[in-house]
Simulated scan of single mutants.
Amino acid sequence: MKHYDFVEWLLYKNNALPEDMHDEMQEHLSNCDICMDIFLSLIDEKEILAAEDIIQKDFNDKVINKISENKIKVLKSKDNKRAFNYQFGYYVAVAAVTIILTFSGAYTNLVDSVPKITKSMEISEVQRPNVIVNFSEKIVNSTSAFLGSIENIERNKEGK
């Protein structure tokens, strides 16, 4: 995606571009947040005051009321019967799957297999050494031996 620079957006704002480039930049502006930030940084106090003269004082209230009216229309226009049928079908399907799993013994097998799985996990942990703990112990032992040898060297120097 090609981005436009500050100067190009300044020319766009002042309508100093050919119509085809102006249209292209306008399309780009609707899709690019980076260029939108650059363009919005060009808006100054004079333009804000001019916009206040054009826009009615109750503009925000009118827009919010229109949005609220549209939400109510959308909610009322939904087909409640269709939604009920969808939910009912969903619950029937879930109940059917539950009944099938119950009669097939899947839940019973699951309850019976959990203790077996737990027991096999305990056995495998006992058989497998913990590499991390062994590595940590080796580091501690090596460090202790190294420090001990340094202390012995210093004692030997002092003894001489």
Score class of each variant (00 low, 15 high):
residue 68 S to V: 02
residue 134 N to W: 06
residue 56 Q to L: 14
residue 133 V to S: 08
residue 118 T to H: 05
residue 124 S to T: 05
residue 9 W to E: 00
residue 92 V to M: 12
residue 41 S to P: 03
residue 47 E to S: 11
residue 155 R to E: 08
residue 118 T to L: 13
residue 150 I to C: 07
residue 116 K to W: 01
residue 96 A to Y: 05
residue 54 I to Q: 02
residue 71 K to G: 00
residue 127 Q to M: 10
residue 4 Y to R: 00
residue 73 K to T: 00
residue 50 A to V: 10
residue 110 L to V: 05
residue 54 I to T: 05
residue 72 I to F: 01
residue 148 G to I: 02
residue 7 V to C: 08
residue 50 A to T: 11
residue 42 L to M: 09
residue 77 S to L: 01
residue 126 V to G: 01
residue 124 S to F: 05
residue 95 A to I: 11
residue 101 L to N: 11
residue 108 T to Q: 12
residue 3 H to Y: 02
residue 5 D to S: 03
residue 52 E to P: 02
residue 49 L to F: 15
residue 119 K to P: 00
residue 138 K to R: 14
residue 66 K to L: 10
residue 140 V to F: 05
residue 53 D to T: 12
residue 101 L to V: 07
residue 32 C to D: 01
residue 113 S to E: 06
residue 59 F to M: 05
residue 122 E to Q: 05
residue 55 I to M: 03
residue 51 A to V: 07
residue 134 N to C: 06
residue 147 L to P: 07
residue 17 L to P: 00
residue 154 E to Y: 12
residue 12 Y to E: 01
residue 40 L to W: 13
residue 87 Q to H: 15
residue 51 A to Q: 09
residue 44 D to S: 11
residue 104 S to T: 12
residue 153 I to N: 07
residue 41 S to A: 09
residue 53 D to P: 02
residue 99 I to L: 11
residue 17 L to S: 01
residue 42 L to V: 05
residue 141 N to I: 08
residue 43 I to M: 10
residue 32 C to T: 02
residue 63 V to C: 00
residue 159 G to A: 15
residue 150 I to G: 02
residue 58 D to K: 06
residue 7 V to Y: 09
residue 97 V to K: 06
residue 91 Y to R: 07
residue 78 K to A: 04
residue 137 E to W: 08
residue 158 E to Q: 14
residue 125 E to W: 03
residue 152 N to M: 15
residue 45 E to S: 13
residue 11 L to W: 00
residue 144 S to K: 11
residue 82 R to D: 04
residue 136 S to L: 15
residue 44 D to A: 11
residue 33 D to C: 11
residue 94 V to P: 03
residue 116 K to L: 09
residue 142 S to C: 11
residue 24 E to K: 12
residue 78 K to C: 04
residue 137 E to P: 01
residue 55 I to G: 00
residue 16 A to C: 12
residue 151 E to L: 14
residue 101 L to W: 07
residue 47 E to N: 09
residue 44 D to H: 13
residue 114 V to K: 03
residue 151 E to T: 12
residue 109 N to C: 06
residue 98 T to Q: 13
residue 51 A to G: 06
residue 149 S to K: 08
residue 50 A to I: 10
residue 106 A to Y: 08
residue 118 T to I: 15
residue 54 I to F: 09
residue 136 S to H: 13
residue 33 D to T: 14
residue 75 L to Y: 04
residue 151 E to F: 14
residue 117 I to R: 07
residue 49 L to K: 15
residue 81 K to T: 07
residue 66 K to E: 08
residue 72 I to L: 04
residue 32 C to I: 04
residue 84 F to E: 02
residue 120 S to D: 02
residue 99 I to S: 07
residue 52 E to F: 11
residue 104 S to Y: 10
residue 140 V to A: 04
residue 91 Y to F: 12
residue 156 N to V: 12
